[in-house]
Write a protein that binds this DNA or RNA. Structure first.
Length: 851
RNA sequence: GCCCUCGUGGUGGAAUUGGUAGACACAAAGGACUUAAAAUCCUUGCCGCUUGCGGAGUGCCGGUUCGAGUCCGGCCGAGGGCACCA
């Protein structure tokens, strides 16, 4: 029998057209089915799709397909995060208009995504750079402005001198711009902010409700928000009216306080602003290193003032006041009390300036007489000592009591502070959403009236000058007030592109609604996103902003959304070996061939140095172009490969052997499908063999269902291999029967359809003469049919495996022990030994404990 | 420095609740078919002796348990996040 090969280049196209023509993946609200919103992080249209996209969208597609077969009404949309810097860079370097460059990339990438046969509802496609998207965003901005959640403030900002723009704290990595890699400098500018801190507590505590998020991501967000519970405490300054308010999380150590430290830009620094020594000191503080790590290791420096403060609980005790480089004005109140015995930084400072070190917490196993603090502060729990009315308490009770005393004596109050800062959203760029704000001649802020939205970007734009092109535009920013006719000026800052991606999941619910960003009815039906999938690099920024934005724009409306993403999955990266030629230049993998275990460059025959496998990146050229691979092997092989071997949350190694292995497997399934159609039924199966077949498929159904539900796609893949190996063997041994095989193969095709939809559809059509596999019901399984009628029971002696016995399940315990003792090997090992104990785990193992 | 995660064959990785370690795949070696190659199929894969069996074995050391890759304590190593946060 000759079997034609499976030809993906024909089959893929056939099914993709069929799905599109029949609008199979278009979603609409339905009362009959439960909804399921499956979303992958939308791509930035940088040019071509890369393997990371392939992996991300394949993972999502498995879920979307699976849920559809499970009877859910699935929303699985796609869009484009299409504002951003690379478009402007392209404009400057290639003299292309950012819009043309972007739209062109979107077209290319959309075509490429379609080649993979994803079950996407393209009718809901959105693009953030279209004014029919960003006009709604401008409306949200105005809403937030009216709610007092947007404000403008003169502030020190992170300035990227290469990109000529402001960066959010989150976008500064190791003191460098996240995109340009340039050393970030501090600059004072008037900037727009979202008041994300207003939601700090809610963003923190609500993390506990996200049961389907990775622990890791929740911890990262918790650390970023940095909630700390403590209190404010005021110190009277001797001979002055003013007081110094400090924030502390360790009020229980107040009796160990030996100094006060202020940030150099603390309000009290005004008294010293003309003091040349202080000016010198302040300059020194600013000079110290730029990277965060350098700052952390910098020596603690102090400038002693003439102030003295009175200790609030110890009569006649005064504390010296310093300005210091390790206290930040942005956190707490810009002032601390130093307790050197129980804080490492305070201790270093105290040792340097020869200040008192009084221990007030005694560790459990220490003696009060011998306990001394030298170079290491003690930060653990213990018994409070040297502390008057707090003596004898532990740290926690001490805190409660001292805060009570502080509040009672009107010295301060309990307070919670956060590390989180407000979100700076101003960007001095062209290719972003314009901020709908006007200024009059005095600089007063005038929000653009809603009926004048959208504020569209001008099409004619010039990138020749550095800085903000919108600002340089000859007339765009000049407007006449529609009411008064006065000359007004537009805000030329545009919004951080993270704003665009903070609500796009809501837009998908109402993508064709011209009147509002989303309709409450739609959001009520589709939200929250049931499963969100994307890279872990967005664990903080994008996810935190989205959580904030959802809260902010729905606050005080009929439908408040707190958590937009019910389930989150963060996938690993796609890696590849790196290659360098003799000149140390990176070489593309496609230009490298292997000969006798050595790698050489295809054209020059240069010997290639093989570097470690790293995440695919253009700069290291260790990329494999998805389109090339799809053309060669077809969509299903590529999908299959990125699901195989590695668990989705971990990095995956791209390899040529791997993809050709996947291709072979696709062909194997095809061959089996063809063989099943041609079974001649010369030898029918006996009853035992039929039972065996039922067991195989029931087991597979159970395993695939379990492994999809738990994101163990690599294990599901292994189970498919196991099953196919079985079936293949039976077919080759002529142990087959058409009716039985077509019955179990039918279920098999439904199971594998989410992974390889083209192959499954084609096999289905040939075997069962219809195109409707996608409307099938996910098969159920019967545990009774899976149960083995002969099982292996492990026989252990002192916990070591010594033999196996074949038994029917659920046998009497004594019978099994008897059988064990008859085994030659066991007999031998039990000779001259006393049996102390016999353990039986039902249908699994026997352990005989002897001495 | 603090927080988190992970260490299993030559490689990627399996092992629901502690219960047969190495499923499945890749690579390698040997073999079958073939004039040959490709494709396909089979076998092997730590140490010791004769099929069989015995021994070691999931980064290292110790503990709990009849039994530990899995639980606990302490090290070592890799990766990630945060970084003067009071």
């Amino acid at each position: 029998m000759h079997i034609e090969k499976f030809n993906p280049s024909v089959v893929d196209k056939k099914w993709q057209e069929h799905w599109e023509n029949k609008k199979i993946f278009q979603a609409s609200k339905s009362k009959d089915k439960p909804k399921y919103y499956c979303l992958e992080m939308f791509p930035y249209p940088s040019g071509k799709i890369h393997m990371g996209h392939v992996r991300n969208y394949t993972l999502g597609d498995v879920i979307a397909n699976y849920k559809r077969l499970k009877g859910f009404n699935v929303l699985h949309p796609m869009g484009w995060d299409s504002f951003g810097m690379p478009a402007e860079n392209a404009a400057m370097q290639k003299k292309l208009h950012p819009k043309d460059w972007t739209l062109n990339n979107i077209k290319t990438m959309k075509d490429q995504l379609k080649l993979l046969g994803f079950s996407i509802d393209w009718s809901r496609e959105i693009s953030t750079c279209n004014d029919d998207y960003y006009k709604h965003q401008q409306k949200f901005f105005l809403d937030l402005f009216n709610k007092g959640l947007v404000y403008k403030k003169e502030s020190l900002v992170n300035w990227d001198p290469v990109d000529n723009t402001v960066l959010a704290n989150e976008q500064v990595i190791d003191g460098k711009g996240w995109r340009s890699g340039a050393q970030v400098i501090q600059k004072k500018l008037s900037q727009w902010f979202f008041k994300i801190t207003a939601f700090a507590d809610s963003l923190d505590t609500s993390l506990n409700t996200l049961h389907e998020w990775p622990e890791k991501v929740k911890i990262m967000q918790k650390n970023w928000i940095g909630k700390s519970i403590g209190c404010e405490l005021s110190f009277e300054i001797k001979n002055q009216k003013e007081k110094i308010t400090v924030f502390t999380t360790r009020p229980d150590t107040i009796f160990g306080a030996s100094f006060i430290a202020l940030a150099v830009d603390h309000p009290l620094s005004k008294d010293y602003e003309k003091n040349p020594k202080f000016i010198e000191f302040k300059d020194n503080c600013y000079k110290t290193g730029n990277t965060d790590e350098a700052i952390a290791k910098t020596e603690k420096l102090g400038f002693k003032t003439d102030y003295e403060v009175v200790h609030p609980f110890i009569k006649n005790k005064t504390l010296p006041v310093f300005f210091s480089n390790f206290v930040l004005m942005e956190y707490g109140s810009g002032a601390i009390f130093g307790c050197p015995a129980h804080d490492q930084r305070d201790l270093e400072f105290a040792n340097k300036y020869k200040l008192e070190v009084t221990p007030v917490i005694l560790p459990k196993d220490e003696n009060i007489k011998n306990f001394k603090i030298k170079d290491e502060a003690y930060t653990g729990d213990g018994k409070i000592i040297n502390s008057d009315f707090l003596d004898g308490l532990n740290v926690e009770d001490g805190k409660t009591k001292i805060i009570y005393e502080i509040e009672n004596n009107k010295l301060g109050k309990a307070k919670t502070t956060f590390r989180l800062r407000d979100w700076g959203i101003s960007r001095q760029r062209y290719w972003g959403c314009p901020i709908p704000i006007l200024y009059d001649e005095k600089g007063n802020i005038i929000p653009v009236p809603e009926n004048e939205l959208p504020i569209k970007l001008p099409e004619d734009i010039n990138f020749d000058k550095p800085g903000n092109p919108l600002d340089h535009h000859p007339d765009w920013k000049k407007v006449k007030c529609t009411k008064t006719g006065k000359e007004l000026v537009r805000e030329t800052d545009t919004l951080d592109t993270f704003v665009d991606s903070s609500w796009y999941f809501l837009r998908f619910c109402s993508s064709d609604n011209d009147q509002e960003g989303f309709a409450i009815d739609d959001a009520k039906y589709w939200m929250p996103v049931d499963q969100y999938i994307g890279g872990v690099e967005h664990a903080i920024l994008h996810l935190l902003y989205s959580r904030f934005f959802s809260r902010a724009i729905t606050q005080d409306t009929k439908f408040e959304i707190k958590e937009p993403f019910k389930g989150l999955f963060t996938q690993g990266m796609v890696c590849h070996k790196t290659f360098k030629n003799q000149n140390g230049e990176w070489v593309f993998p496609e230009d490298v061939i292997e000969e006798n275990g050595k790698f050489i460059e295809k054209n020059t025959k240069d010997i290639i140095k093989v570097g470690p496998s790293e995440s695919m990146s253009k700069s290291k050229k260790n990329v494999v172009d998805p389109q090339t691979v799809i053309n060669l092997y077809g969509a299903d092989s590529v999908r299959w490969f990125v699901l195989s071997d590695s668990p989705p949350e971990r990095d995956i190694q791209w390899s040529d052997e791997g993809i050709s292995g996947s291709y072979k497997f696709i062909q194997k399934i095809w061959t089996i499908s063809e063989m099943i159609q041609n079974i001649n039924d010369k030898n029918k199966l006996n009853e035992e063999e039929i039972k065996q077949c039922e067991k195989l498929i029931n087991k597979l159904i159970k395993e695939i269902t379990f492994n999809i539900e738990n994101f163990h796609f690599n294990v599901a893949v292994a189970k498919f291999y196991e099953f196919i190996n079985h079936i293949s063997k039976m077919l080759h041994e002529d142990k087959s029967q058409k009716s039985i095989f077509q019955k179990i193969f039918k279920d098999f095709l439904i199971l594998i359809y989410p992974f390889t939809p083209h192959l499954a559809s084609e096999c289905w059509e040939k075997n069962y003469k219809n195109k409707d596999i996608h409307t099938s019901k996910w098969p159920g399984f019967d545990d009774k049919l899976i149960k083995e009628d002969k099982i292996n029971i492990v026989v252990q002696i002192n916990g070591k495996k010594r033999a196996l016995i074949d038994m029917e399940p659920d046998q009497d315990q004594e019978l099994i022990f008897d059988k064990c003792l008859q085994i030659e090997n066991v007999k031998k090992l039990l000779l001259d030994k006393n049996i102390l104990k016999k353990i039986y785990v039902k249908n699994k193992l026997v352990n005989i404990v002897v001495k």
